[in-house]
Design a protein around this nucleic acid. Structure first.
Lengths: 105, 105
DNA sequence: CCAGAGGTACGATGCAAGTCGTACCTGAGA
DNA sequence: TCTCAGGTACGACTTGCATCGTACCTCTGG
């Protein structure tokens, strides 16, 4: 069962929601940028400078979080997002590499 | 440029449409069944016995075809569908394996 | 030749998704 | 303390998607 903030466990990750989350180019961009950074890198939602409103940013990060792609932890004022790299590699080996290999859109 | 029937070339395959096509469980089921069969296996749309109407089946196969996942060739009365296994492995290595590894839904 | 099966095309419908504005809450910092 | 930036919640709107029925085309088999 997902926790209070909607993070599924590794076993709870489903391919359908994961692929649906990655079908959106903005969300793939977030995953790509996190994957390009050192493992464990935590960034705020706003640091990605997505070309949409704040409300829409929240919407996209929820989709990523509930699919299991990222983890969000409250850190003071903001919520830092980290890529669940090891979990993803265990559950869907190679998927992250495919997203990373995609050229900028 | 895609051909008359909407098949993209390997270079034209885009991750977004491919992931969007695979986000649907019915379409993943088609890909899984084709991937489980010997390479080159050609099946008719109706042979998958999808639990939807004929019109919807056509819709799903078009999505798969235009994303580049399958190839459809007219064979007499029907259109045989084959998995573009080698093309997919070249363009998105490992993706097919991830879909295949998914348990029946 | 004709009936039927396999598919497509088109229009309609219902629902989910992406988007936004606004209001609101909560820490950080002046 | 007060202001502001980071996020969330909610409602509204629009677009896209999955779905269907129906009509239609085209082969194949009797």
């Amino acid at each position: 069962m997902p926790d209070d903030e909607g993070h599924p466990t590794v076993e709870e990750m489903r391919l359908g929601p994961v692929l649906a989350a990655l079908a959106d180019p903005l969300r793939r961009r977030v995953v790509r940028e996190l994957a390009a950074a050192p493992d464990g890198t935590a960034r705020t939602c706003s640091s990605f400078a997505l070309p949409v409103s704040k409300a829409t940013v929240t919407h996209h990060f929820r989709a990523l979080r509930e699919a299991g792609l990222i983890q969000q932890v409250a850190r003071g004022n903001s919520r830092m997002a980290t890529l669940r790299r090891a979990d993803l590699e265990q559950r869907f080996p190679g998927l992250l590499g495919i997203v990373t290999a995609e050229p900028e859109e």
